[in-house]
């Protein structure tokens, strides 16, 4: 555990807190992509299947359960709970996620660590996480203007990815035999998807102003 990894996990947790607060306190899921949240639920449920047989630390196992629980709760609230379910707009949030899930499943089958069923599922979850934010980014793009809490949510997720990237660099130089090409590749792609958002986020928040983020 290093500081980058720890802060990365914390900002990941923060993103869940922001989103849960937004939809429970604000009673609205407007601007939030249910598609992205469903993808995250699939990602965590498939990657953390190994909760049943792998144990590396209490910290890890606890957070795995937290991530599955939070993403499931978010999906449940937006899909089934009133009044939130009535604020979700399926016409706006209509990214065809089958085009993300399909290719990631094929990639997981073909490119994985050692051709065991769990490694295939695990690789699938890594690939799917890399692109899971796309429906959310497309939704924001369509809306043009992004509500503050939503922009903080995406920013926290982006920070989590950036910090994980730094964690990998740190581990590469401080540990022997630390090599995970699949994770590095997918993680770099994933972080890259946030660059445009961060540019606009910075533009609207600089100088202490708290204007909503405007996307072209």
């Amino acid at each position: 555990m290093n500081i980058f990894r720890f802060l990365g996990d914390m900002s990941h947790i923060l993103s869940f807190v922001i989103l849960l607060l937004k939809i429970t306190q604000g009673k609205s899921a407007a601007g939030i992509s249910l598609r992205t949240q469903e993808l995250y639920m699939i990602v965590f449920c498939s990657r953390y299947l190994d909760l049943f047989w792998n144990f590396s630390s209490l910290y890890n196992s606890f957070l795995k359960v937290v991530f599955i629980a939070c993403s499931s709760a978010i999906v449940y609230i937006i899909r089934f709970k009133s009044p939130q379910k009535d604020t979700w707009n399926p016409e706006l949030d209509n990214f065809p996620i089958q085009y993300l899930i399909g290719p990631c499943a094929v990639a997981g089958l073909l490119i994985n660590q050692d051709w065991t069923p769990f490694e295939m599922i695990w690789a699938f979850s890594i690939y799917l996480e890399a692109v899971a934010i796309l429906p959310q980014l497309f939704l924001l793009q369509k809306q043009g203007e992004v509500e503050n809490l939503t922009s903080h949510y995406v920013a926290a997720l982006g920070a989590y990815r950036g910090l994980y990237l730094m964690n990998w660099v740190y581990r590469y130089f401080t540990e022997d035999d630390y090599l995970q090409r699949i994770v590095w590749f997918a993680g770099t792609v994933q972080t890259g998807l946030y660059i445009d958002f961060f540019y606009h986020y910075y533009q609207s928040k600089r100088g202490g102003l708290s204007r909503p983020v405007k996307l072209p």
Partner: peptide
Amino acid sequence: YDGAAPKDEL
């Protein structure tokens, strides 16, 4: 492939 990759990240 990465035989040594540890699954200790989230």
